[in-house]
Design a protein around this nucleic acid. Structure first.
Lengths: 196, 196
DNA sequence: CGAAAATTTGACATGACTCAACTGGAGTGG
DNA sequence: CCACTCCAGTTGAGTCATGTCAAATTTTCG
């Protein structure tokens, strides 16, 4: 087995073991149900109006989940970086077309799996069900925390928070995407940045 | 066994079977790990700064999750009605003190369980892990949908949406709580209502 | 280098907030 | 059962944060 694969498997293992202890064999089974995919910058993991068939574990790179609003403006819902699972959960679980798209913002390497394969895996490796229960709980917690920041803080504070927490975001992601993630217009973000 | 208990057990069973098929025995085991609690209107299920020890399944009634912001104003995060699980997940999972409170807005009957008991249950009834994985996924999906409404719609639309979806909310819940749930000031909500 | 995309700037518009005063209804106690 | 209090809801004036639109400028990238 190729060095790169070993590296990816180790990364997955380290990640999963934070939730549940898996044996080496279990990790093997899980890894063998995943496929490796490479996406170039700007490429779509999920195009608009498609059913989101796969769940993606980001090994390396950066993606965003976004949609086009009624005025034709892009709205970024969330960014995904390494060691995050990304999918449009609504579309993935219910098998309905996704208005949202997933796009690579940098060249990105992922492990991915379909819903059917994942269901199989849950049966082969029951502990994985627990791991995903916890992963989903953590996602819920972090989305709730984000909501709180939105309710409590001004857009200026939201921006400085984000930059403090993930300083290199400002370089890796165009400003207008950050603006739409923060729920403000690009012009106003530009205004805010000037005043620092 | 008391009629009321039978009734509650049936309600729980119907609810859980929407996610996973459980046998009668499994439902019994689950039910026996839950306790029944009654809360009077205005009573707290979770007071401020306490660690949220329990997860509540609402049999009947209405509760809210809220906090007091920096200016001393109440902010309602979410409402819980029958057949919903309510907890401050962050506090419950990580065992950290909760700035948020849970309060009954009507006389409310719940089934509740601690984290430790729930962990035990997951081991006794492994299918429950799957059920909660799905329940958590659904919570995540619905919070994401709520976020989208917030990003896309004006506060006027958010209000009329809410009233359309849950018409009796307007009667069961004071306006100022609805306002804070919608993220607007009570004065402004009053303004909006006038213009219909 | 040149075209297209991203960002900045400025003028103006507006949704939503704050504060303070007023109204009306729901308890509560004498 | 009345009088009083208290709290929710309304109204209005003034203000501020943030949006929109259009033009100018800078950056990116083929």
């Amino acid at each position: 087995m190729n060095m790169v694969f070993v590296f990816m498997k180790t990364q997955l293992k380290t990640y999963l073991n934070k939730y549940v202890q898996f044996t080496e064999q279990e990790i093997d089974i899980i890894f063998n149900h995943l496929i490796v995919e490479n996406f170039k910058k700007k490429e779509f993991l999920l195009p608009q109006n498609a059913i989101c068939k796969r769940r993606y574990f980001i090994i390396e790179g950066l993606v965003r989940l976004f949609y086009i609003d009624a005025n034709g403006v892009e709205k970024t819902v969330l960014f995904g970086v390494e060691n995050w699972w990304i999918t449009n959960l609504d579309s993935f679980v219910k098998e309905i077309p996704s208005e949202k798209m997933i796009q690579a913002l940098e060249n990105t390497v992922v492990l991915s799996i379909t819903r059917e394969e994942l269901e199989k895996l849950y049966r082969l490796v029951p502990k994985l069900e627990r791991a995903f229960r916890k992963i989903t709980e953590n996602m819920l917690i972090s989305i709730q925390r984000k909501d709180e920041v939105f309710m409590k803080k001004s857009s200026r504070e939201r921006y400085s928070n984000l930059i403090r927490q993930i300083p290199d975001f400002a370089n890796r992601v165009p400003q207008y995407m950050i603006a739409s993630y923060l729920g403000i217009s690009p012009e106003y973000l530009s205004e805010l940045r000037k005043q620092d």
